[in-house]
Write a protein that binds this DNA or RNA. Structure first.
Length: 492
RNA sequence: CGGGGUGUAGCGUAGCCCGGUUAUCGCGCCACGUUUGGGACGUGGAGGCCGCAGGUUCGAAUCCUGCCACCCCGACCA
């Protein structure tokens, strides 16, 4: 393992790539664009899953699982959605290999084993799920249908980066069906709020809730709700989306229900998802030049205890104190690891756990035993203090909240100082390059203007914020009337 | 998918232009000893289809062709 990370200042994107690999989150695999998520990275993802899954259950959803493959004819049933994903679909055309007669030991695709109908590897599951819902829904009594699935999906991306954009990624996708438009819209908004609460409270990442413009909307949706986060380098990252699908999929897959009055009506749908991309957001929001910084809620190990000793007697004495402390902390619900490996020195371990972002490190040595103290180091502030036996447990328990809150506060502060209200297009262009971040500006609401801005500056409208400034004004580009300010940024 | 770059031990690299002893160095790894409060030191050792496949040549890490993977810049995207 190399000793130092490239700094964010030197090369932000290199820093990110190195950090993800060196902190043991993930690595590239022998398969183009596909990553291996390593145990440490997967441990963090599992914590996200557990919390989200709990929230989904609390809001009435149940998990189910649908197939990885979607027959082409089924996939293309909802035209807009199919078109939107067409360019990035992996397609299965054959079902068998055979020995290559001209090349001993090699296999070739058996030309006689061509599928009658190609199978699309799901880039998202609306098609297969709605074709299934047709059989599940007959009456208003079957509604609402509130289903979530944890799955992998494949989108054949040209340029990939670990977690941020990979050809295969893990996510959850919720798919619901409702009797009324109002109920479906409420569901879309509810799930956007569930995501926002999760990302802010659990991941300590502040987000802006809003609505996507028509051009940024999910293909096949009537409306896309989103949460947008701002990374340390001033680029925005879409952290989650929730779609109101109207009756588009119901009509495409003929999902109708009998109302109380006995009339046949199409159901109203939603879908919503967050992915392993959140891992990228986590890294780019909190981490520093020394490595990963994890909020306590997500850290697989919240506290690590490092023993310091010169001989077996000291090790035994220190271990006893460590085990005692570990038991006391665990009793309070803190996830603690005692690193009693004799194969690495304390200094090596200190660096290792800083790289891996463990929130709190406690060192115990002979001096501490003598004085009845512990050395406590915080990963978020990189500060150390010596605490007495009597207060250590309460203090560390308190640190969990304190660090979680501090990380969120720091991220909020970064976003506040990197959100700029601009009045003119010149000012926008200048500050976009000089400063980056979010820009709150007036826009005339047309696709043409949005396109022009995107072409000229690479910035896009991240969202029309819900809690933004709703006072009318004039578009910074055309001078035409604008109903409200929208949020611009360069995005991942 | 277009342009550019890279690929040599687990990691980082020298050598490649200008083909020719046993492929360089550092980290890591293994053994033993001394060490242990911020990435220890000494001694000894192991580890290489020079990305893969062809070709040119008496001879290829080095030259040529194709392929694969990764990185950067575009187009596309969560």
């Amino acid at each position: 393992m190399a000793k130092n990370l490239t700094t964010r200042e030197e090369d932000y994107s290199k820093w990110y790539n190195e950090l993800v690999v060196k902190a043991d989150l993930a690595e590239n695999s022998g398969v183009r664009g596909c990553m291996v998520i390593k145990p440490y990275g997967f441990g963090i993802w599992e914590r996200m899953q557990a919390e989200l899954d709990k929230k989904f259950k609390e809001t009435g959803h149940s998990n189910a699982y649908f197939p990885l493959f979607v027959p082409k004819s089924m996939f293309e049933a909802e035209e807009k959605n199919a078109e939107g994903f067409a360019k990035e679909c992996a397609v299965v055309t054959h079902y068998r290999l055979k020995n290559d007669d001209e090349n001993a030991g090699k296999l070739i695709v058996d030309p006689n084993a061509k599928l009658e109908e190609e199978l699309i590897v799901r880039p998202t599951s609306e098609a297969i799920i709605w074709s299934t819902y047709k059989g599940w829904v007959q009456s208003y009594r079957d509604l609402p249908l509130l289903i979530n699935q944890w799955a992998n999906v494949v989108r054949w991306e040209m340029r990939t980066r670990l977690f941020l954009r990979t050809a295969e990624f893990l996510w959850q996708e919720g798919h619901t069906a409702h009797t009324t438009k109002k109920e479906a819209i409420e569901e879309s908004e509810r799930m956007m709020n569930v995501y926002a609460d999760f990302v802010q409270d659990f991941m300590a990442i502040p987000v802006v809730k809003g609505l996507k413009t028509e051009s940024e909307r999910f293909a096949g949706a009537e409306e896309t709700y989103c949460i947008e986060a701002l990374m340390q380098d001033g680029k925005a990252l879409q952290a989650g989306t929730s779609h109101f699908l109207g009756q588009n999929f119901a009509k495409a897959f003929d999902v109708k229900f009998a109302t109380k009055e006995g009339k046949q009506e199409y159901v109203w749908g939603t879908s919503w998802g967050v992915s392993t991309r959140l891992m990228g957001a986590l890294v780019m929001t909190h981490s520093d030049d020394k490595g990963l910084v994890l909020p306590p809620n997500l850290a697989p190990d919240q506290v690590v205890i490092v023993p310091i000793y010169r001989n077996d007697e000291q090790f035994d004495a220190v271990s006893e104190a460590a085990n005692e402390l570990m038991a006391a902390l665990r009793a309070k619900g803190v996830r603690v690891k005692f690193d009693n490996r004799d194969t690495h020195k304390p200094g090596w371990k200190f660096n290792e756990y800083e790289l891996k972002g463990v929130p709190v490190r406690i060192a115990i040595g002979p001096k501490d035993l003598e004085n009845g103290t512990f050395e406590v180091a915080r990963r978020d502030t990189l500060t150390k203090e010596v605490l007495s036996k009597d207060v250590i447990v309460d203090h560390v328990v308190g640190l969990m909240d304190e660090i979680q809150n501090n990380l969120f506060a720091k991220a909020i502060d970064h976003r506040t100082t990197h959100t700029t209200e601009v009045e003119s297009y010149d000012e926008f262009k200048e500050l976009l390059e000089a400063k980056g971040g979010f820009f709150s500006a007036h826009w005339d609401g047309t696709i043409e203007t949005e396109e022009k801005i995107k072409k000229e500056t690479k910035a896009t409208i991240r969202c029309i914020p819900f809690d933004g400034d709703n006072t009318p004004g004039t578009c910074m580009v055309t001078g035409n009337p604008s109903k409200r300010r929208v949020l611009f940024a360069k995005a991942y």
